Simulated scan of single mutants.
Amino acid sequence: MQHAAAPRDAVPGNPPGTAVERLVEVVDLLRRHCPWTAALDHAALLEYLVEETYELYEAVDDVARAEAPEQELLDELRGELGDVLFQVVLHAQLRAEAGSFGFAVVAEGLTDKLVRRNPHVFAADGSLRTATPADGGTGTPPSVDGIVATWRAVKAQERPARTSPFDGIPHHLPALAFAAKTLGRAGDGRAGEGRQEQGSEAELGKELLAVVRRALGAGLDPERALRRAVLDYQRDALDRA
């Protein structure tokens, strides 16, 4: 049996397992000895989760837009990743205290899902397939479309109760993300119509900003308008199905 390859580059510091174990231990100690942390519950943490996620989004985008990210940007990204990880570990700790599951079960579930949904990389037992482009094998590389199709097929098998392509899309997403996710799930060909018409992402951003400006000038709420349009689109699509 061939196991997964080690990380490509050595990273300074303790092995990930050691660092994660210490993090889980610290969170457990905070829950037992810090009155503020001990008072938290899932509901109270939601606003922090949303805030930290947006801060991470901004940090990732700052690094992505920089041709050669300065150390300050990388430090910011590292810190924001840690803040989001803290939220994940804390929510898992709350479930551990309730006797449901702990962080290890969350990590194991994620690992199993990644193996299951990527059969072009992993065998059913979790070992690395021997004939893959990644390890110099002679197998034919799968197409990106094929990989996505397999991912979706396995996901559908995991949740057979979801009969609508829009099931599982959070309605609390920002309206623009809600719209993009909906069109993507619908496989709407119109989602790609503007690729040749739009010169760049920057130009598209200016057009979107102009739409928002017109909405505000007309006394309309662009967020609510788009959200309602997406909900109408979903309803109409299901009616046609």
Rank of each mutant, 00 (worst) to 15 (best):
R195Y: 08
V230C: 07
L74N: 02
P222I: 06
V26L: 12
R195L: 12
D28H: 12
L216Y: 03
G187Q: 06
L49P: 02
T163S: 10
V105T: 15
A96T: 03
L74D: 07
A107D: 03
L46S: 13
A10W: 09
A92Y: 00
T182N: 03
A4N: 12
K181M: 13
V106S: 04
D232C: 05
L231W: 06
L85N: 06
A6V: 10
R32G: 15
T150Y: 00
F122E: 00
V105S: 12
D61A: 12
L183M: 15
A107V: 14
V84F: 04
G194H: 07
D167G: 08
Q234D: 02
G199F: 07
H3M: 11
R159P: 00
L209K: 08
D125C: 02
L85P: 00
S100W: 05
Y57F: 11
A218L: 12
A202W: 03
T130I: 09
A6F: 07
P16Q: 05
A96G: 09
V27Y: 01
A92G: 11
V88N: 00
P170V: 01
G137A: 05
A175I: 08
S200W: 00
P174E: 01
V11T: 13
P133W: 07
N14S: 14
Q234H: 02
A153N: 04
D167M: 04
A218F: 03
Y57Q: 11
H33T: 14
